[in-house]
Amino acid sequence: MIRHIETEATRPARVVVLGATGFVGQDIIRHLNESGIEAVAISSSDIDLIKPESVEKLRGAIRENDSLIIVSAITPDKGKDAGTLMRNLTMGQHLSAFLEEANCSHVVYISSDAVYADDANPVRETSCCDPSSFHGLMHLVRERMFAAALQKTKTPYLILRPCAVYGARDTHNSYGPNRFLREGLKEHKIKLFGQGEEKRDHIYIKDLSRLVASCLLHRSQGVLNIATGHSISFFDLAEMIARLCGNGVEIEGSPRANEVTHRHFDITAIYKAFPEFKITSIENGISETFDEIKRASQG
């Protein structure tokens, strides 16, 4: 579902990351720095995309032929309501106004698998986009806003739609690996919705950053889902984390409020776009994350 403009890996002149202080943006910057790719971090404290003057500031900060990665968004943990949706869209509107006249070499938008219908199994890039949340709707609208803006300048445009991302530096407390690790380490108890029957795919943050870098090197365009292709239940995930934490971490179910839904990904498009890419298994990713959290707490 993506096409490489550069068939041989070609280092971009400079990469600008918008939303660089968030969990995902930070790790992308880390990876680009480690890979020797010049990366410029721009956060909301540098340019607040909610404000109309952000358009002019973006013009000042982003050069012609920069590769641009857009991660900026107000995340669901800060609001899931219509107001948050509208603020996110306002940010998108200002970015679009900038993109319409910019001459970036490549634009990568980090969207979300929330754009897909809840029952789109297995999820592929061609699956029906029918978001059930404002968060998914926001991403879908922004994807299209940017596409329309970039069409005017014929700038190569890539949309990445990751599943739930985990890693040691995640500040969000959403249901899944990060919360389970915190609960396991601090409270010695992991709390599940229902009995944790739902199966989900979780991608390790370092895999996401590596894939973003690979896409930059090839100036890839199109749509690509980012997932492992292997979904596990929240219960199995909790058990995995409980084993790592040791000390008899308890897994506690709760009365089910919502019906059980599952999400699986068909990641053939990753295999085809990056045949040599090795995806980190959930076992190895969680283990690395656990070790990193432990090291950070000891250091």
């Binding site: 297995p122 292709g229 068909d266 053939t268 295999y271 085809k272 045949p275 090795k278 995806i279 298994s281």
Partner: peptide, 16 residues
């Protein structure tokens, strides 16, 4: 989808 069955097995069992 099924055309890529072998590719998925090879990635899972060999390339990874």
């Amino acid at each position: 989808y099924r055309r890529d069955w072998a590719l998925k097995v090879i990635h899972r069992e060999i390339i990874s």
